[in-house]
């Protein structure tokens, strides 16, 4: 809240500018921002600060960095961090490739059901992530279709598809779940691409591959960057998919926060991991928000420089 109040003087010179339709005597605009800010401060910002505070306040009282050194030195943390980053990077790359291709087909090789596919993607975004892991279990799980078919074919009870409980299973689930998040901004960006530019490029002798690389891609690069960084953040923060995977050797930072806090009641340790996770995510999210305005208008102008 302190930061909010310190904003107030900044507005001081502004009342000279009277907005159309706003009577000069009415309450200044920033006052209206206070109630929602107060609410957010109480239930989100203040608790978040407390998490940082708790990470240096052991249950025994006083303050120490013991929790930090314990956690940062533990192999469990290192493994979780490695897995988290690996899965996040992998699913981002996967989502970008798959999402670009699928959105490209919907936008530029349209077929009768293309609009329906677009709606289906919107729907996917509203569904909870853990559903994906649950449903993948019915396909590739030990008793799912794939292994059932394998057993049926060969009579062998050896489970052919056992990747679900490995990081690869998490990766597959995250690619499935996050690809629509890449496709949505991409579809919007594709619809903004000037058809005349594509046609002119074709008339100048450019084949589809060249048009995609040199005309379409530079135009949608900001949207692609925005989608990619969003997926990166979301997959760093992903919890449901990993929880439902239920594999002991697939632990991510968020799962570690959960198990330290809820299962082991080790709050300082949970808070340390939470702080690390938040710093990573917020840094990447800022990157995402930097990409966003460029996704709007003058995107990609430097690509040809």
């Amino acid at each position: 809240m302190a930061s909010v109040l310190s904003e107030a003087p900044v507005r001081a010179p502004a009342p000279a500018v009277v907005r159309p339709g706003r009577r000069p005597r009415s309450v200044p605009g920033w006052v209206w921002a206070l109630p929602p800010l107060a609410g957010l401060g109480l239930v989100f910002l203040y608790p978040l600060v407390l998490v940082g505070w708790q990470s240096v306040s052991p249950d025994t009282g006083g303050h120490s960095l013991a929790a930090w050194s314990d956690v940062l030195g533990s192999t469990a943390f290192h493994r979780a961090l490695r897995t988290t980053v690996w899965v996040a990077a992998g699913s981002t790359v996967g989502c970008l490739l798959l999402g670009f291709y699928l959105a490209w087909v919907i936008a530029f090789v349209p077929f009768p059901g293309a609009r329906l596919a677009g709606r289906f993607i919107d729907l996917f975004v509203a569904l909870p992530s853990f559903l994906i892991t649950l449903s993948l279990a019915f396909i590739y799980g030990s008793a799912g279709i794939a292994n059932g078919a394998w057993t049926g074919l060969t009579g062998s009870h050896h489970t052919l598809f056992a990747f679900l409980t490995t990081p690869w299973g998490v990766l597959l689930a995250e690619i499935t779940y996050f690809t629509p998040f890449v496709m949505r901004p991409l579809l919007a960006a594709f619809s903004q691409v000037d058809t005349a530019q594509i046609e002119t490029a074709a008339s100048l002798g450019a084949r589809p591959g060249r048009i995609v690389r040199q005309v379409i891609l530079p135009e949608v690069l900001p949207a692609l960057a925005a989608g990619g960084s969003l997926v990166l953040v979301m997959s760093l923060n992903q919890f449901g998919i990993v929880l439902f995977t239920g594999a002991k050797d697939v632990t991510t930072l968020t799962l570690l926060v959960y198990s330290r806090a809820v299962l082991e009641s080790d709050y300082p340790a949970a808070c340390v991991i939470a702080v690390v996770n938040v710093v990573l995510s917020v840094a990447l999210h800022s990157l995402y928000r930097l990409c966003l305005p460029r996704a709007g208008k003058e995107g990609g102008n430097r690509a040809g420089a």
């Binding site: 002798g205 040199q214 135009e219």
Partner: peptide, 27 residues
């Protein structure tokens, strides 16, 4: 279209915004 050997100019110019003038012409 790309095998017809035509030149086309449209109302809204359709210049590639991310390419310099010379790169547009070289396209």
């Amino acid at each position: 279209p790309y095998r017809r050997g035509i030149g086309m100019v449209v109302q809204q110019y359709a210049l590639f915004p991310h390419l310099r003038v010379e790169q547009n012409v070289a396209f």
